[in-house]
Computed example of a mutant assay.
Amino acid sequence: MSAVSNGVSLAEPRDFLALLKPRVMSLVVLTAITGLMLSPGHIHPTLAAISILAIAIGAGASGALNMWYDADIDGVMSRTAKRPVPAGRVAPETALAFGLGLALLGVCLLGLAANWFAAALLAFTIFFYAVVYTMGLKRWTPQNIVIGGAAGAFPPMIGWAAVTGSVSIESVVLFLIIFLWTPPHFWALALFKLKDYDNAGVPMLPNVAGERSTRIQIFAYSLLLVPVGVAPWLMGFAGPVYGIASVLLGANFLRHAYATLRMSDGDPKMIAAKKLFGFSILYLFSLFAILLGEAVATQLVLAFGG
């Protein structure tokens, strides 16, 4: 189906919303707000809100540029075939222009509302995701998710930089939580979507190294992730609620990762991998939601508790 019929565009507002990858954007917004709230210093609430909006726009730009470039492989994968560009509802050049326009808007808005260091970090993140990962790593190496995962890990660091104009060890820890979470999260998905990636010619780890090697690496990254997930409490910039939750959530993450490790090759149901994938989303959202909740509570106590 063409994106234009009888001179009339088939695109609806929801198609442009889909180009932004709203589910990914929700994670970006949560982690960016968390970084902003945990950072030392002060930013006016209005400027803080504009900064978060700018980061969200930047995330949307990355999604649109990714969908523009990946339309060919999205069209042959069941998970992505109905996206606006491969489905023919949005023309590729429209998605490209939309993404570039949003990228410019997001970077400039963040620079004007916060500072140009944070804006430069946002610009680098968009470039890394759209060019380094999407155009380069994704189709060339089975380690695409490991290296490319850095793009999704930058938002809390950008939120931190929006207030401080710099980065710190605390923001690096927040970065590392997402960075180390990304491989087990996406490789679990790749295990039960292996045929999709085969059809698209994308060299995901299970397709190249095999299922057993993938399961071993999932477990190895999980072993690295869990202590880093507890680190904010150990380092003193998260409270006891986070400490307890991060330990319990981490133990459950390892339980799912171990169950995935013990799966047999060619398991038709992939139940353990599916459970790990689902729980990994809950794990990351929970960690950052609790961090954010503690930060907000601390601010309220300082403001009204005397």
Rank of each mutant, 00 (worst) to 15 (best):
V230F: 13
M235T: 15
W187Q: 07
L53Y: 11
S51V: 09
T164G: 11
L205K: 00
A119D: 14
W160E: 14
R14Y: 00
V8E: 08
A59I: 03
P22I: 00
A272I: 02
A259T: 04
P22E: 03
T141Y: 15
L174K: 15
P84G: 03
L224M: 13
S246V: 02
V107W: 09
A190K: 01
I281L: 08
A220Q: 14
A64L: 07
G99A: 06
E294H: 11
T34H: 13
P45T: 12
A190T: 08
V247E: 01
A61P: 05
V85C: 07
P227R: 12
G201Y: 07
L65Q: 07
M37S: 15
G111W: 13
L189F: 07
N199V: 07
Q299V: 06
S280L: 02
M270N: 07
D72M: 07
E170I: 12
F186H: 08
L30N: 01
Y129G: 10
I52K: 15
E93R: 12
Q217T: 03
T141D: 15
F219I: 15
I43N: 13
N115M: 11
T125F: 08
F16P: 00
F124D: 03
V230Q: 11
L291W: 03
A103Y: 03
Y69P: 04
L205D: 08
N66I: 00
P268Y: 12
F237D: 14
V90E: 01
S166K: 14
G210E: 01
I177K: 10
Y197R: 04
K274H: 02
K82V: 09
L19G: 06
T260N: 08
A56W: 06
A273H: 04
A32M: 04
S26K: 11
F304A: 02
G210I: 00
A56D: 10
I55R: 07
A81Y: 02
P156N: 10
D196L: 00
A303Y: 10
L38S: 15
I57T: 10
M67K: 02
N199R: 10
A190R: 12
L53K: 06
E12S: 03
L176I: 13
I158N: 10
L205F: 11
G111I: 08
L38G: 13
I244Y: 14
R79P: 03
F285R: 04
L194A: 05
L234Y: 13
V90N: 02
S286C: 04
I50R: 09
A297G: 03
F304C: 12
T125L: 05
H42C: 11
V247R: 00
G152E: 09
G106F: 05
K195T: 08
E211M: 05
V172D: 12
L248M: 07
K193G: 04
I169G: 15
K21E: 08
L112F: 15
P206R: 02
A95N: 08
V230D: 02
S26F: 08
R23Y: 10
G75H: 01
P45Q: 06
I177F: 13
